[in-house]
Design a protein around this nucleic acid. Sequence first.
DNA 1: TCCTAATAATTGACCGGTCGTCTAGTCGAC
DNA 2: GTCGACTAGACGACCGGTCAATTATTAGGA
Lengths: 198, 198
Amino acid sequence: MSNLKPKQFKKDRLLDQGVNLLLEKGYHATGLKEILDAVQIPKGSFYAYFESKERFAAEAIYHYIEPFILRLTGHLQNPERDGLAALKAYYSELIGEVVISGFKGGCLLGNLMGEIGDTSPLCRDALLNAVARYCELQKIALERGQQQGTVRLDRSAKSMADLMLNSWQGALLRMKVEQSVEPLKDVCNDLLDDYFKA
Amino acid sequence: MSNLKPKQFKKDRLLDQGVNLLLEKGYHATGLKEILDAVQIPKGSFYAYFESKERFAAEAIYHYIEPFILRLTGHLQNPERDGLAALKAYYSELIGEVVISGFKGGCLLGNLMGEIGDTSPLCRDALLNAVARYCELQKIALERGQQQGTVRLDRSAKSMADLMLNSWQGALLRMKVEQSVEPLKDVCNDLLDDYFKA
DNA sequence: TCCTAATAATTGACCGGTCGTCTAGTCGAC
DNA sequence: GTCGACTAGACGACCGGTCAATTATTAGGA
């Protein structure tokens, strides 16, 4: 089939735009028409790509988290940095970007967990999976830091990864209403620069 | 005016039910009709009590946080406990309640910060105010703990209060999708039982 | 103490709009 | 001609919000 490629291309464009709008306005406030108009795909075609809005959101969750996982993986592969330094570099990169974006949106995972995390089974599964993979990656970073002697050993990497992820999510919420990066910086300062240190 | 009392009574019932539904389904997924039906108040009467759905949500935010502030204040007035122990008692009380509620909802402040924190100015202000007051109270608890020698002195009470609040919000999101209290317990274990200790 | 008239409060039908979804029909490839 | 992919537009439901009509309340004159 020659048009399978363009089909996947269009699907990706829908997901790209969908992620942007879901991030900016949330699940229920984002209309399918809005997404379709933005990428100039007719309304009637939506269900050729996705079986429902809910499934679309679930796919958007995977589409959203993948680049973050790749970026953090990239930092971890930098041989010059230990695990903790890689995390610090990663998070300070994120902080730089939210400033540019004007503190809008935050994290799609956090927003959707709050809005539909306990009402949409499809999205719940996607969120569980995405969070688990993202968290695992941070656990690996911290484990490496432990092996390299920069991260404390008396707390498990898993529990520190959870704490980092949770605190970051909470800080993103604060960022949104306070329109400031201070909450994000504070989390990094408290955890990465202090609590996690060996 | 003799019916001012019943008016305030009905307004409170609307807010009570509104908080429940907003907590369960979020802002956009909750219809005014649903709230009104639940307390058997006619649709047309809504705007006698509130000028808009947005304003209603803003008032619901205050209505929601007040009992939490009162309860934490109560724990702080218990002379047998130091500030840190009061916080621990308060949070373990909260954990007990989310188990009963079946991990539904989470925290209205967190959910609304994520959903409309950067799109509704009215709610943003209400959220800012509510979070600030709630956070201040926890700061006071930690300050007291510092004076009593149970909380470390080399970190400011304010920054620890922020970290606790942020981590708790993140943990509530995890709780919703994982349908488990473990994230909440972990936060208490990591922060109240370890990081904050003197 | 009534009856009436003026005023205030209450309310359900209704508005324009948007939602997610579906189907009947178009159109291009072979 | 046949078939499958694509799509325009309709569908019913529901949204937040409004308003004319109804009901309740009050005040004053007899």
